[in-house]
Amino acid sequence: MTSFTLLLPNPRPLRLPLPLFSGKVAAGFPSPADDYVEKTLDLNELLVQKPAATFFVRAQGESMLGAGIHPDDILVVDRSLEPVAGKIVICALNGELTVKRLARGNGQWQLRAENPAYPDIAVHEDLEMVIWGVVTNVIHAL
């Protein structure tokens, strides 16, 4: 039978313990620095401000290379952020989730690709209905 586990959106995110600093294990006098090892670094802390509103998505295509987004990169998207001009956003265009840069021009909202081959798209509907979320970070494997 299928079962499911309730997955909470990490109110206290899973800690990834990367010790900032630790003394060598020695069979003698303990390192005087050991007393200061208390903080570990957690990438969630750096990348996720609002766990309930944060989604990860995977990028496809090359039109946003200029913004540092490569194919297969993972984008961190915060849906709760106010979309403002200049931000990279995920938008629902023609039923598809698409990455664009939000811009303001000719007195209206525009969606731009970082690629001159693609024309700017003017937003005529309610911005709220078009913008899916604001991209805050790119996770790119080298």
Binding site: M1, F56, R58, A59, Q60, E62, I74, L75, L97, A113
Partner: peptide, 26 residues
Amino acid sequence: ASTSSQGAVSPQYTTSWRDLPKVTCQ
């Protein structure tokens, strides 16, 4: 363990790295 049969289950968008929603750059 196969009492359940599911034809069209959507991806685990929010809980599996392999199933992340795809967004296009075009």
